[in-house]
Amino acid sequence: MVQKSHGADLSVRSVRKVYTGRGQAVEAIQDLSFDVNAGELVCVVGPSGAGKTTLLRILAGLLPATSGEVTLGGTVVKGPPPGMAVVLQEYGRSLFPWMTVEKNVELPLKEKGVAKAERKRLVQEALEAVSLADAGKSYPWQLSGGMQQRVAIARAVAYEPQVLLMDEPFAAVDAQTRLELEDLVRALWRRLGVTVIFVTHDIDEAVYLGERVFVLSNRPTILLEEVKIDLGAERDQIETRTHPAFGRLRNHVYELVQQAKKGLRSIEDARLTH
């Protein structure tokens, strides 16, 4: 059993991002401030081009913000912080193709200085947790897309992070696999108590997974609304999704995103029917 690591709270204060390339400046993120509590699962949705990936890369410390700051567990993020793991959309490209599945999962642990026996145990448990205990000796490219993304999740889980960042992790897997992986993320989250930020463009997915859903505006991005998802802790692909509350929340977020696409910049201006 992978140990329950305690999540860290994440705080975003007046983050702004301006890309300066080829002479002209593009403001990707205008002003974002929000807090994610330790051990919370938050989904981030928004119209395509809403700077979701930019935000996630800033949170991960992979991209410097133009101004503002991100703090993780009280420490300001300057470059990738320890105790953070990421799962990217491009599963096929985020796994090292020259390493077996086991080695891929083990690599960050080596860097962390985990002793060999302990590494072995963590790798095995993480692979079991994603139901890939038998695939350790395979290479990532020998696996299907869904399995590859599970390896990436196992790598993140074995790392025992306080915060797990996921950038549209299931955008490129088929629909059925996707539902399975969603439940896997929920299960792992509940088991590990880790803070999860899950970026997606899929509104149903966001509502199904999240405790809260952050709806972003069009570029330059601001936060439109933090939607509380009170669907309880136990979620089920059939029951939850057919629940009236789910439908209401889903429609609410859907309308917001649709209007955000057309340029909605404040929740006060929204014309909501749900």
């Binding site: 300066t20 410390g61 410097p64 913000a65 133009t66 700051e69 300001v76 993020v77 300057k78 470059g79």
Partner: peptide, 8 residues
């Protein structure tokens, strides 16, 4: 966080 110099 140090931002990359803009005049490359």
């Amino acid at each position: 966080m140090t931002s990359r110099s803009t005049t490359r």
